[in-house]
Amino acid sequence: MAIRRGRGVAAINYPTGMNLGGDPTQALVHSTPTGNFMVTLSSVDLGQGMKQIMAQICAETIGVPTDRVVVDTADTDTGPHCMGTFASRGTHRAGNAVIQAAREARQVMLEVAAEELEVNASDLETDGQGKILVKGAPQKSISIFDVALSAHFKRGRSISGRGMFLIPRSYPEKETGAMKPSTCYAHACTVAEVEVDDETGEVTVLTVKNVFEIGRALNPKMVEQQLVGGSWMGISHALYETTEPYYPNRDHGGTDFNQYLMPGPGDLAETEIIVLERPSADGPYGAKGPGEMCANPQIPAVANAVFDAVGVRIDTLPITPERILRALKAQAAN
């Protein structure tokens, strides 16, 4: 009887979005009379930071500071259409829709500015700080505040735009069955080191080293935060989480989330995160969907590490002490 060490590796491809009846998201952008911008969406921020990312995308596209943008995700009854926040699709699908809407709004904004400055709209550029300048003659400029006032009260223009991003449904080809069920793959690789007590079946994760390839990190600190939390959830899936922890009688299972086991602050593995940025061609400013995949590669990596440590393959999750002991017993019997 001993504590045995093992190391396991796993790598994954992870798709963005889904292929049911098509995968659309709609976005609307408009300016207020004072030149702030509203993004209206039905995509929901679950705490992953979608509002912040959509504000950044809109601000970048229109050419204003991020704090001039307000994102409203209020109401799926009355707002534009979104399939929802799942399948790691929010940044990619809603982001593309916001870019399209913001481009249209920017065009109107430049047209109004052009009339005020008596120049051609194509000769104008934004400084990213709230001003519109004539290219090559920056002394000739107008604030976006004044442009919005003019649009509303003088020229009767609506500085607004519509965006709709759709990945159409993919049907399998009759002959080959080939299809394109998803777009824009993110990638990840994890190496996990574990200790397994072959007397109690208990697994301790010592280290998890993760590399994530996520397109461009639109907000690097928020990406890191998502990946650190996700890596912990991956360990949780691998070793802890189940609604039926006790074999064989269901009655011994938990009855609410208080009894749903997850690792606490005292059970953390030493975690390393490395982010690789390979901007995707069809993503908003190169982004992919890092959402769910950040909790995936840890699971096979831990299963492989357990195999490396004690020589048994556990193919049912979570990898509980009981399952390991049963497998060790079966192994000894053979």
Binding site: Q225, V228, W232, P265, G266, T271
Partner: peptide, 16 residues
Amino acid sequence: VEALSGNICRCTGYEP
């Protein structure tokens, strides 16, 4: 860790 052990977080993984 001891002081936070009575508080559950579902998002961050506690380290932050």
